[in-house]
Design a protein around this nucleic acid. Structure first.
Length: 483
DNA sequence: ATGTTC
């Protein structure tokens, strides 16, 4: 039996009495149905998070939560840096700044559908996918150090994208305080040929349609650029590739060495390795992790450039003429220093979001001026078969440090999914459902079957009921490049 | 997620 107390129809609490060392309660946002489906391990993992130094108010898990490395995926933990708050790679994820970007077109489903095979085949060719894939952007190691300090801004300067893309990216695509001097040569080696690559696992690039019946909030949809019935959009999901992975690996080792001996921090699970934010090791990782953020922003920027090239090629018009404006780019795996009001006082908190999206409400600093009246766009990627959502941040999101879900969330392990589905058969089945898909790996495709994920509509509904974010439009896939 | 077991 799970140690959960029901707070409301969409919120559950694990009291501090559940486990020795819990500093605050743990809370899971989910409907009863979603709680039933949730991994037993989530309650255990999120209550471990509640023992970490500096954790403020409560350790949170979003409705798409599932088992992860140390922290559950879907975890949110805000650490008070003035109270010995820690930074933990396990609370950010190995794939630093794994995230989503959404771009609109002025094309309709009717215009795109006849070309879908051509578009996807070209995208498959032009956006390298799969484990170990290399990008077309050739940079020296020193140039790559510049990339990880400048992020998407570096790409724009090189001609990969439009100036406006930056203002429509979280942190304007370049987070300050990223120092390449804090990065190992090994991480530089792994990352320097990976700019503009999709990766593998749950990373994908999808052509989607905004059908009129799926517009939930017309005003917000229009504000975010969804203005035409059956408008075609492109959504993609990828991260910092081997670079971010190496950064996380390097600093996990550092933290494991100093955590107990130097800082006297005792943890229940070594996967929660951490160091005080205000310590040399914590600050070094923070600066290195920001390089991971920037690598990922650069990666998505170059991929956007290639998507524009492909559409331009297929339709014989410029990307400008095709109206290929970016809606937004959001991170799913970060820790950010933010000011939040706790017990009536403004506090500096390091907000870890792992498989969770920042969802700032209307009027807040840090969201593009054009979206200020509406709230921050949130791009939530569902499974490749079912659909995804564009959401918006709301003022009641203060309860979760303005964080919401990031996707559907798995219901079963990759191993289990592989046993249940066959990649080649799944491709055929998806074709019958009107989704043309290309993949580098049949095995990888089987792992990502829609049936291995929770009901995205239920997850999104739960975030809306709880007041974490609200629905704008549901997007359905017609083509997919699966990493 | 990941040069999918330094």
């Amino acid at each position: 039996m799970k140690p959960l107390e029901r707070i409301s129809d969409y919120l559950w609490e694990i009291p501090t009495s559940y486990k020795p060392g819990m500093r605050v309660p743990a809370r899971i946002y989910a409907t009863e149905q979603l709680i039933q489906e949730m991994d037993e391990a989530v309650a255990d993992q999120i209550s471990n998070v509640a023992t970490l130094p500096g954790i403020t108010r409560s350790a949170l898990c979003m409705p798409d939560g599932h088992f992860g490395y140390g922290f559950p995926i879907g975890g949110v933990a805000a650490m008070d840096i003035a109270e010995g708050g820690v930074i933990s790679p396990g609370g950010i994820g190995f794939d630093i700044n794994c995230g989503m970007r959404l771009v609109v077109t002025n094309l309709t489903e009717k215009e795109v559908k006849p070309q879908i095979k051509k578009i996807i085949d070209k995208l498959y060719e032009r956006v390298p996918a799969g484990v170990g894939s290399k990008g077309f952007v050739k940079v020296s190691r020193n140039e790559f150090r510049q990339v990880v300090q400048e992020g998407a801004k570096w790409c724009i300067n090189q001609g990969y994208g439009w100036d406006e893309d930056l203002e429509l990216t979280e942190e304007n695509g370049c987070i300050a305080g990223a120092y390449a001097s804090k990065i190992s040569d090994k991480a530089i080696d792994r990352g320097c040929n990976q700019i503009g690559t999709l990766g593998s696992g749950n990373h994908y690039l999808e052509i989607q349609v905004a059908r009129p019946e799926n517009i939930v909030n017309k005003e917000l949809a229009e504000a975010f650029g969804i203005t035409i019935p059956n408008q075609v959009v492109v959504m993609f999901h990828c991260g910092s590739r081997g670079f971010g992975h190496q950064v996380a690996t390097d600093y996990l080792q550092v933290f494991l060495k100093v955590m107990e001996s130097k800082y006297g921090i005792h943890i229940l699970d070594r996967e929660l390795a951490c160091a005080p934010f205000n310590s040399p090791e914590g600050q070094d990782y923070f600066a290195a992790m920001k390089c991971g953020l920037n690598m990922s922003f650069a990666n998505r920027q170059v991929i956007l450039h290639r998507i524009r090239e492909v559409f331009s090629d297929v339709f014989g018009r410029s990307a400008e003429a095709l109206g290929m404006h970016q809606v937004y780019d959001v991170s799913h795996n970060t820790a950010k220093l933010e000011e939040h009001i706790v017990d009536g006082k403004a506090r500096s908190l390091l907000v870890h979001r792992k498989g969770s999206t920042r969802a700032f409400g209307p009027g807040m600093e840090g969201i593009p001026d054009r979206y200020k009246p509406y709230g921050q766009p949130v791009i939530l990627g569902g499974s490749m078969e079912t659909g995804s959502y564009l959401l918006a941040g709301v003022s009641t999101g203060a309860q979760s440090f303005f964080s919401t879900a990031h996707g559907s969330g798995r219901t079963m392990s990759r191993t289990k999914a592989r046993k249940q589905w066959n990649g080649e058969q799944l491709q055929k089945d998806m074709q019958k459902q009107g989704i043309y898909i290309r993949t580098t790996s049949w095995r990888g495709l089987a792992e990502e079957a829609g049936g291995a994920y929770k009901d995205v509509d239920a997850v999104v509904k739960a975030t809306e009921l709880a007041g974490l974010s609200k629905r704008v439009v549901r997007l359905v896939p017609i083509g997919n490049v699966k990493g």
